[in-house]
Design a binder for these strands. Structure first.
Lengths: 237, 237
DNA sequence: GGCATTATATGATTTATATCATATAATTAT
DNA sequence: ATAATTATATGATATAAATCATATAATGCC
């Protein structure tokens, strides 16, 4: 996969107010915002930002899916978050004035806006509403991370694998057939999210397939028996 | 351990401005703040707040140590964060207007202030400086949580155990002897942080003790060979 | 102060999962 | 198209760590 960098385009088509945190802005604020953002088109596999880089602004996903990934030990990747259109990325390092501690990589072709750093800070400083939206976003990411910690600490790889499929479904939803998870990840990427080896990931997916919990077609995973998958994930209630 | 609830006291002795996030307030703001907080003394093992409860305010640790813990699967505890004096707790649920997703329990006798919810919201809304301090705090907690995810995903229990000791040292520091970690946790609590069984935790501590990386005296753990402990934790550079 | 309970310790056994190995299928490049 | 590379699949083996078991030490309680 070649990385020629994103293709800069105008912002005619993209409406940043569709992005969750910005829908608290009024019309004037939204108009002003569009003057301070630049849109770009990214090919699948391109970096939106990279670990250790300095944030120049806030990224808003207009379309496409993104993984936030960090390099762990012996170069093994860890997928920390999965992001969908409407979401913001790169807000953590930006807000705390740090370097990125993870990279953002597109999982498919994507259209992404960048809002200038200074403008973003001015806007959230003057709009508590927007600030609270961003805070809620970070708060949710923290909660999700801590849930992941509990899962990694206490669940088997098998349970976490089932849980991961439910998480992918919750994040990206189904395709039109109402059963195929609407994202294409390699087995390795799934393993890098679950915290297991690629082989174990492949094996467990095969097993779930044999047990008719899911069905596999290339990278496409369909949930056939949701109830049993939930049981396998050992989700309490 | 009996839980008779915290003992309410006046706020003569405690100075909330010592708390990290509040040192951005000016004198007038700090004076005003002390009118809207109430101090209480907690015995070791008491709950400051409990999972699923609704936040009534923000807690500031004047003295004492706190664990944030959540109940995982089969009732197994997971320690999510360890908090020391000067820190705030309960900010996440408060800011996102949710119920607590973890409990806060004192690890030793503690003196803790609570700042009224409404007053806290008014203050951070009118003081972007304070808001940014709280945001930085949450940002850091998110970073720490994500580092923990990588560790849980990619490291062995043995490595994580060594890492946990270094983490405890980094969080609470040494006692006067300059080698004893300044916190008393049960083996089970350490296991609940590391994500392992109590037996494995005990076994590994014994092993580190035999290998002269640490020395054990009851719940007190001293780091004898920091260099080797770092190696055992497999910390990269 | 002695009894009950809980925490720590350590041994024996089992098991989930990583690792190593090899094969086939699917992409990508030439 | 064909070769080369990468992804997926599955078997065999090794091992870290959980679990079960029992003993001792420490702590809390009447």
């Amino acid at each position: 996969m070649k990385n020629n960098g994103p293709l800069e385009t105008g912002c005619m088509s993209c409406n940043v107010r569709l992005n969750s945190v910005f829908n608290v802005l009024d019309n004037d604020q939204a108009k002003d915002l569009s003057l301070h953002k630049s849109c770009a088109v990214y090919k699948k596999g391109q970096y939106v930002f990279a670990e250790n880089g300095l944030p120049a602004g806030l990224f808003c996903i207009n379309s496409g899916k993104i993984k936030l990934t960090t390099t762990g030990y012996d170069g093994k990747e860890q997928i920390l978050r999965l992001v969908k259109s409407g979401d913001i990325v790169g807000y953590r390092a930006l807000l705390s004035n740090e370097r990125y501690h993870c990279s953002a990589v597109t999982l498919e072709d994507a259209s992404i806006c960048m809002i200038d750093k200074k403008y973003f800070f001015d806007t959230i400083t003057s709009s508590p509403k927007l600030m609270f939206e961003v805070v809620k976003k970070m708060s949710n990411d923290l909660k999700v991370a801590e849930d992941h910690i509990v899962s990694l600490s206490q669940k088997s790889v098998r349970e976490r694998m089932a849980e991961a499929l439910l998480f992918l479904k919750a994040t990206y939803g189904f395709e039109e057939d109402n059963q195929t998870i609407n994202v294409s990840l390699s087995r390795e990427e799934i393993a890098d999210y679950v915290g297991t080896s690629t082989e174990s990931c492949i094996r467990l997916l095969s097993e779930f397939n044999n047990d008719k919990l899911i069905s596999l077609k290339g990278k496409k995973i369909s949930i056939i028996n949701l109830q049993k998958l939930i049981q396998t994930a050992n989700i309490e209630d």
